[in-house]
Structure formats: structure tokens, C-alpha cells
Write a protein that binds this DNA or RNA. Structure first.
Length: 592
RNA sequence: GGCGCCGUAGCUCAACUGAAUAGAGUAUCUGACUACGGAUCAGAAGGUUCUGGGUUUGAAUCCCAGCGGUGUCACCA
């Protein structure tokens, strides 16, 4: 089904027949628009074997292919490039195959088990724009890997313990007066986040006071009463103190309720949720193993380290002197227990690029411990989302809250739709559903179309476009095809079974692009990049819009056969667009 | 400072493992069939791919140096 590979195969056969090239490293790419042809072979790599100049080589190859491959209609040579054009019959067949395919674009089962860890929030504050990128990426990558034929497991590792939660707890005890999400009508994660901010405010005030009293700043940071309280609470938590654990469970519960709402609105989900409070002791066994193997070493104070200086890295702590584990130890342990439980072939961590070093070290340590599956770990290291003023800083209040952002996107979509009169005749519930799909779709596409690895800029003032390379543009294209289908159905005038006898240039262009969908999914999966799928969906929608403009379907004077062909092409396009967008987690309205 | 990542139209982003004249969108300007749904389509204009060297038949892409930005260098996660 992958046409590019078919053509590549022709070229391989030609190169072998003419020059005896075995498995030559050939590249075939799409022919650039300004030249005639569908696919292009770059002949430079073959010159060493052909001992001829690029033009002659291309000419010979072209003639061989023309003579031996009946699907090829023509070829032409420009400089060292051999352009190959496939015949109309070939494309008709491709179109028919796509029409008949059950799950077009979705790969056959690979038998591989793939884990994707994403989201992994702290429980002391609500989700913000950075988390949005994380969640959307994780969810979409999981869907893409699944579409490529893998068995996928989405996991979330919630950081539910530590000093940061204690800070919220202390502040709540001091200033909360028993406030609950119910009593204050505040979403739980926001409520707890408010106390985290309250802690920071009180903490700063106390430091200032101590400094004014003559204490050095460094010392004041440690001696501030509220910080001492938080540290003491963490110790109590670790000792299992009942009242601390109860409060901890209650406040975390509020946060989870809040997160659930956010996750649901965002449309993401997980197959398994890990809690760090249950995994933080993992990895200690691994430390023993490492010590036995001599990979780790113990210092005089009892702490355990690994020396990575010979690999150009630092020394890394793995166990504190008091015997408690650190982040790295936990992650090592979690990875091992996951491998033992699920035997993954690929373990993708969707984590910001600020943790690049951590994952480099993680993989290296596992390798040194002798775990070959260390290579299966992939850190999908995404870039930060920046605001025009620079990085988001929760302490400076320059965060873009996830809930607020989603709500404002939906609202903006509603206003715009209603101005355009798109919501006329729809019930309140229907308009809301449509606005929601458009607003959230715009947001998701805006984030996912960017290469995950790159830092991206989000300008709240300019907000998100609804025209151009956006989800609403693609959704609109889709909704219009749905409308055509409804009308054609009512008219009962279109018989889709009419045999396809010819395709014009634009139609061939569409079929060509349609045929690329499976390869796009595979490439996106290999690359762990939804951006590839987004680009494809846009390209498809754009091309179809051009086609739509030039090819009337339900207007008078269109012959029955043209009508059938155009409508069936439209329906296939709609199906593929729907599939592609679903890989991005974007819902498609059938009217908008 | 050590290590890493990034630098492409005014702006936001593309360009698969090096390949033909570096592409879209947006903003600006000009147009489009009596709107099968105009959130559409066509066109114009917009570039020394940060700078300087190098490798190559060929460099935005690979190598070196510099400049600018950013991340990290916690017994936080």
C-alpha cells in the first residue's frame, strides 16, 4: 500500500539489473510540485556503480523501469533526478483499495508492548500550560503507537509525597479554618494550590523578618518557623503519623478530584496510575545489587553513589546516609518493576527537557547494572512552553492555568461560532458541544503541531487562531463533507457504486496523499511525534479544499458518474481526516 | 565556568537519514464562481537559514570557532 516503497522497489530492480547493485542505498522522494512526475529517484549515490554521468544514469534507469514496470506511465530526467510518473489505472486501484480497507492507516499488530508515562503531576498545585503540553503529547503519542500496531499502556506516576505537599498542608492548618472544596466551591487542586501560594508568601515574610532582625539570608531560609514546621511534618509523614497521614490523604483526595475534572475535559486517560508514596521505597534492592557488582560504592557516611566521571558525567547519589532513597533510586526501581511486570519493548517517558540529564543517567546506570532493556527507554523530551515575557513562573503568578485556558478557548469558540451564525438552530446543549470541540481542538492542534522537542511560544494576548493551519480549519473541512453526505443521502440521487473510470490530476494528487497516511502513522510512531500527523491532516484538508472549489458535487449539471466519484473521494478524505485527528485526541464535529 | 539543546519571512512554525528554485500559516496588498456551507479559494509581496571557516558533486541539515538565547550542574521530583 505504501506507494513510495513500490517505486523504490522498481528503482532497486533497475539498479540491480543495470549495475548489479545489491541493496543499494537508494532514496525515493515525492516529486516536487514544479516537475512532472509522482516520485523521484536521486541518482547521485549510484554514479559510483554506473560509471556514467548523472543524466545518462537516470536515463538508463528510467528506460529500464519504463520497459519493465507496466504501472509506470512515463519518466523524465532533470539533472541527476529521475522523475517517475505512475499511470491513472494504478491510482484508481489505490483508491479502491483504500475505500475497501477496514482500518485504513492502522498497522497490523507488531506484538510489541509499549508503555507511555506522561502527566506525572505534583499534588500541590493545579495543572498549567506546561502540563497541557505534556498531557496532550503523551496521550497522542500513545494513540499513535497503538495505531502503528503496538499494545500500549498509558501510565501516570503521581508525585504525591514530599516537602511540597507538606507546605500546602501547613498553610491550610494555619490559615484554612477548615475550608474544603465543598465549603468554598473551589476545585480541589486549585484550593490546595492556593495554600501552596499562601505558604510561600508567609515563608517570604518570615525570612524578611529574620533578616531584618540581623540573621543571614541563608540561615533565615532554614530557620523560618513555617519551613521548620513543614520539615517536621515531612518527618512525621515518613514515620507514618496518623493525623498527618489523614490530612495528607484528605488534601490529596481534593487534588485528585480536581485533576479528574481537568483530565476529563482535556480528554486524556490512563491505564494505570502509580503513586510515588507507594513506589518511593523501590530501588533499594537495586542499590544492593549495584554494590555487589561493584557498580556503586559506599561512602564513609553510609551514602551510596555511582561514579560516572569516566562517561563524562558526574558522581550521582543513589541512597542518602540515612538510608532513604532519592528520585533516581525510585525511578530505577520503578523501571525495573515495570519491566518485570510487563516486559515492555519500549518505555517512553514524556518529561520536559529540563530532565535530560536525569534520563541520560538513568539509562546509563541501568546499562551498567547489566539490563539490556535500558535501550528500550525513550525520553520524549519536550520543550518548555514560553510566554512572551519569558518562562512561566508559578511564584510570580505568570502561569497559564489549564482549566482557565480550556474554558476560555471554548468560550472564544462559542462567541466566534455564534457571530458567524454557525450555532443558529442548535439547542443550548448542541451549541456547547460544538463550541467545546472547536475550542479544545484549536488548543490541542496549536500545541501538537509543533515539534515536541522544540521550545514553543504561547501568546495569550493573540491567543489561538481559528483560521489557517488550525484544527477548526480541518474540522470545518470535515463538517462540510458530512453535510454533503447528509444532503446526498436526502436526495437519494447519488449511487456510490458507479465504477471509477478516470481520475483528473487533482484527484490523483488526493489519492496520492491519501495513500501516504499509513506511512505517516508509522513515521510518527517511530519519531514519537504527533506533529507529523498534524501536518498530514492539514495538508489533506488543504488539498481537499482546493479540490472542493473546483469540483462541484451536488450542483446541477454534474453528471451522475462525476457526482459519485467526487462524493466517494470526499468520503474517503473525511474518513482519513477523522482518523488522523483522532490520533491527536481531537474530536470532530459533524456540523459547525 | 562544565555539559546539553536551540537560532529559518515582521510574527508562529515546516523541511524524513545531506539533494532540484528553503515551504506553510498569519499579518499586509489585490482578486474570485448568483456561497453544493465564504471558518473557503486564487494571486502579489516578504529570506545572506545568527556570523565566519571547513567537509562534499551537493549543506538550514555534518565538523570547528565565535555571537545570542535557554536548560542543567540539589542528599527536590
Amino acid at each position: 500500500m505504501n506507494v513510495e516503497n513500490i517505486v523504490l522497489d522498481y528503482c532497486r530492480r533497475a539498479a540491480e539489473a543495470l549495475y548489479g547493485a545489491q541493496n543499494a542505498d537508494l532514496q525515493v522522494s515525492k516529486t516536487r510540485r514544479e516537475f512532472v512526475g509522482d516520485y523521484t529517484l536521486v541518482t547521485f549515490p549510484l554514479l559510483r556503480l554506473s560509471h556514467k554521468n548523472p543524466e545518462q544514469t537516470a536515463q538508463e534507469l528510467g528506460e529500464w523501469i519504463g520497459a519493465n514496470c507496466p504501472e509506470v506511465k512515463s519518466f523524465n530526467v532533470i539533472k541527476g533526478f529521475l522523475n517517475i510518473e505512475l499511470g491513472e489505472k494504478f491510482w484508481i486501484e489505490v483508491l479502491q483499495n483504500i475505500q475497501a480497507a477496514e482500518n485504513f492507516g492502522f498497522g497490523a499488530p507488531t506484538g510489541r508492548t509499549v508503555m507511555v508515562e506522561y502527566s506525572s503531576p505534583n499534588t500541590n498545585k493545579p495543572l498549567h500550560l506546561g502540563h497541557v503540553r505534556n498531557n496532550l503529547l503523551g496521550y497522542s503519542v500513545a494513540k499513535i503507537l497503538q495505531a502503528a500496531g503496538n499494545k500500549v499502556m498509558k501510565v501516570n506516576l503521581v508525585n504525591d509525597r514530599g516537602i511540597h505537599i507538606c507546605k500546602s498542608m501547613i498553610a491550610w492548618q494555619r490559615y484554612g479554618n477548615g475550608e474544603t472544596p465543598a465549603s468554598s466551591a473551589t476545585k480541589g487542586d486549585h484550593l490546595v494550590g492556593n495554600y501552596y501560594v499562601a505558604f510561600d508568601k508567609a515563608y517570604k515574610a518570615e525570612i524578611a523578618e529574620l533578616v531584618a532582625g540581623g540573621m543571614a539570608e541563608e540561615e533565615a531560609k532554614k530557620e523560618a518557623p513555617i519551613m521548620r514546621e513543614a520539615s517536621a511534618m515531612l518527618l512525621k509523614w515518613e514515620a507514618g503519623d496518623k493525623s498527618v497521614r489523614d490530612l495528607w490523604a484528605t488534601m490529596n483526595g481534593w487534588v485528585y478530584d480536581g485533576f479528574d475534572v481537568t483530565y476529563k475535559e482535556m480528554g486524556v486517560s490512563f491505564d494505570k496510575i502509580y503513586y510515588e508514596s507507594q513506589t518511593y521505597l523501590l530501588g533499594k534492592k537495586l542499590v544492593e545489587v549495584g554494590l555487589e557488582k561493584g557498580v556503586f560504592y559506599r561512602r564513609a557516611d553510609g551514602s551510596v553513589w555511582i561514579d560516572l566521571t569516566s562517561d563524562g558525567l558526574d558522581e550521582k547519589l543513589l541512597l542518602r546516609a540515612d538510608g532513604t532513597s532519592v528520585y533516581m533510586t525510585q525511578d530505577l526501581g520503578t523501571a525495573l518493576s515495570r519491566y518485570e511486570e510487563f516486559g515492555f519493548d519500549d518505555m517512553t517517558y514524556v518529561v520536559g527537557n529540563e530532565q535530560n540529564y536525569h534520563f541520560t543517567v538513568l539509562k546509563l546506570i541501568l546499562k551498567k547494572l547489566g539490563y539490556a532493556w535500558s535501550d528500550a527507554i525513550y525520553h520524549l523530551s519536550y520543550g518548555m512552553v514560553e510566554l512572551p515575557e519569558g518562562k512561566m513562573k508559578s511564584r510570580e503568578g505568570t502561569v497559564v492555568d489549564a482549566d482557565d485556558l480550556m474554558a476560555s478557548m471554548v468560550e472564544e469558540a462559542r462567541v466566534m461560532s455564534s457571530e458567524l451564525g454557525k450555532l443558529d438552530g442548535l439547542s443550548e446543549a448542541e451549541s456547547f458541544a460544538v463550541s467545546r470541540k472547536i475550542g479544545l481542538g484549536a488548543l490541542k492542534y496549536f500545541i501538537l503541531k509543533v515539534d515536541p522537542r522544540k521550545t514553543m511560544l504561547f501568546n495569550p494576548a493573540e491567543s489561538i487562531d481559528f483560521n489557517g493551519n488550525t484544527a477548526p480549519f480541518i474540522q470545518y473541512t470535515y463538517a462540510r463533507i458530512c453535510s454533503l453526505e447528509r444532503k446526498a443521502g436526502q436526495a437519494e440521487s447519488v449511487d456510490l457504486k458507479v465504477a471509477i473510470s478516470s481520475l483528473d490530476d487533482k484527484e490523483i494528487e488526493i489519492v496520492k496523499l491519501l495513500a501516504e497516511f499509513p506511512a505517516t502513522v508509522v513515521a510518527a510512531a517511530a519519531d514519537h511525534s504527533p506533529a507529523v500527523v498534524a501536518a498530514y491532516a492539514y495538508e489533506m484538508a488543504k488539498l481537499y479544499n482546493q479540490y472542493y472549489h473546483e469540483h462541484p458535487i451536488l450542483r446541477e449539471g454534474v453528471s451522475a458518474s462525476d457526482r459519485a466519484l467526487r462524493l466517494s473521494i470526499s468520503l474517503v478524505v473525511a474518513r482519513v481526516i477523522l482518523s488522523a485527528m483522532s490520533l491527536l485526541g481531537i474530536e470532530m464535529p459533524d456540523r459547525m
